[in-house]
Nucleic acid binder design. Structure first.
Lengths: 244, 244
DNA sequence: GGGGAGAGATGCCGC
DNA sequence: GCGGCATTTCTCCCC
């Protein structure tokens, strides 16, 4: 019984299939940290690229995992199945002791598709670049998401009085880290360009009280902007798919 | 065939079992962003708590997912199986169209164990608290990982000249964000306590060049410290488990 | 490979 | 719920 299970796992590993195992097991990990998880029923996944995941029956994240490129060997010791997983370059190790296998399935999966995502920070910056009046009347952007020597600046432009304007977009609530980020860029530009008047604008749907205080101290500005969510693909094929 | 598959999925959902499906499918998501993933072979997992994951055959992270508390309903449309997943409180929606199911398994999993992790930042702070000479001779810590009104400070203490010392630990390379974090704490303490001499020390295994410059400008100090990795549990039961 | 920044980040704790 | 911060964060891009 155990021998059959081991044989199937070994063959699936050799064929580089995607493996799913349900089993009662315990896990030891050593690498960037060390961890131990005592016996319980879990879902174990080993992917074709060598990555491995242990999922408890609840929770979003795997409780233990190994990254791409890990090697796995299976042995039987004292009627228990042990999976030894190693990732030598990353110096990570994981040992899974299977007390009782519940189910096993493996299959070669074919998938060359890549996910298309809309509504990230870049899309938000693009929207503001295309519609500069969302920042303010007279704003003229002239650079978008560029690795300048002043840093990675979301939108760079001038206002109606020809002041240099630097816009930092955030999809979520601005905290003081975002304000500090903007401060770094503004400081650098003032220094390297030798100009005094550089306006800093934070564009986001909301801002924390602490960040607002810091922003006022630094004479920066906050512009309330809702991030765009619009997947062209979806609109083309099927309108309002996601309404309910 | 399709009807049987649908029946099994529905029953497993009703019984709140952990579900694993191998299938050729496409995915649409709308929530914090919007995404589309065209047809390919994937692993689909639905957990007992309503969370759901779609894994491509390679890669560490799920390509799509729904969080805990999501509801899932299954329908047949044009010989395809559609899983409609909704999370109303979070305003998130995911539609999985299964073109061809490869396998299905479901089971109630029992697991009450919690993972024990050693070697995180808290352990590092504790180590330095217990062995203050690792920071410097004469260092006297008097508070550990405390949510003070000055912020969440790793270690708070005094040096041999009775200066206030503030230590921020990082398990990994210090970057300028960590320096800014320390700066916030030091500023706040100087202001609220009305004292001038507050030393700031960053304890970590390494530091980036930019962070080092910033640290020198701010007259802070860097102390090279290796984070501890030691799981008592492991040492008690089995010495040097992770040697190879 | 390191540095810097975003992520559908998540998870934890405290208020 | 929000705020602040760590995470075995991961991922991407650029140098």
């Amino acid at each position: 019984m155990v021998d059959d299970f081991v044989k199937r796992v070994r063959e699936a590993l050799a064929r580089k299939e995607t493996i799913t195992i349900g089993a009662r097991c315990n896990i030891r990990y050593s690498g960037r940290a060390e961890s131990f998880l005592d016996k319980g029923d879990r879902l174990i996944i080993i992917k074709q690229d060598g990555s491995m995941f242990v999922h408890q029956p609840e929770g979003l994240n795997p409780v233990n995992y190994m990254k791409e490129g890990s090697s796995h060997s299976v042995r039987v010791e004292n009627d228990e199945v042990k999976i030894y997983s190693t990732n030598i370059p990353k110096k990570e190790f994981m040992y899974t002791t299977i007390v009782k296998p519940h189910f096993f399935f493996s299959q070669k999966l074919n998938d060359t598709e890549k996910i298309v995502i809309a509504g990230n920070e870049k899309d938000m910056a693009s929207m503001l670049y295309e519609n500069p009046s969302l920042i303010e009347e007279g704003f003229k952007p002239f650079s978008l998401e560029e690795h300048t020597k002043y840093g990675f600046i979301d939108i760079f432009g001038t206002d109606k009085n020809n002041n240099v304007v630097l816009v930092e977009c955030k999809r979520y609530t601005i905290d003081f880290k975002a304000v500090e980020q903007l401060q770094r860029y503004v400081k650098k530009i003032k220094k390297e360009k030798g100009i005094k008047n550089v306006r800093g604008i934070l564009a986001a749907p909301s801002i924390t009280p602490n960040a607002k205080d810091m922003l006022h101290d630094l004479k920066f500005e906050f512009k309330k902007v809702k991030p765009p969510k619009y997947l062209e693909e979806i609109d083309k094929t099927q309108k309002k798919v996601f309404e309910y």
